[in-house]
């Protein structure tokens, strides 16, 4: 199952819940894993990195696209 990792600026539990909720609604998302310490979100599922990035961007939070290394 492909994964998309994204650095997202989240400062509290409410922000984490918001990111989880919008990604949960995105088609093709199997599971959403949020790491508050590293401010990182890992999305497993068939959703494309662009779709994941756009969805998080709509929450108004700063999201750094997945490093293409």
């Amino acid at each position: 199952m492909p994964e998309v990792a994204l650095k997202v600026a989240m400062s509290c539990g409410g922000c984490e819940a918001a990111v989880r909720r919008v990604l949960g609604k995105l088609e093709g998302v199997e599971s959403v894993n949020v790491d508050m310490q590293q401010q990182k979100v890992v999305v497993t599922g068939t959703a494309s990195p662009e779709a994941v990035l756009q969805t998080v961007a709509k929450t108004g939070k700063v999201a750094i696209p997945p490093s293409s290394t």
Binding site: A9, S11, C12, G13, G14, C15, A17, A18, R21, K58, T59, G60, K61
Partner: peptide
């Protein structure tokens, strides 16, 4: 509902102002 901190409320404000 669901806002916990000032960055949540500013995110909502930003989302609205984008419209």
């Amino acid at each position: 509902r669901g806002m916990h901190c000032s960055s949540c409320s500013s995110a909502v404000e930003k989302a609205l102002l984008r419209l």
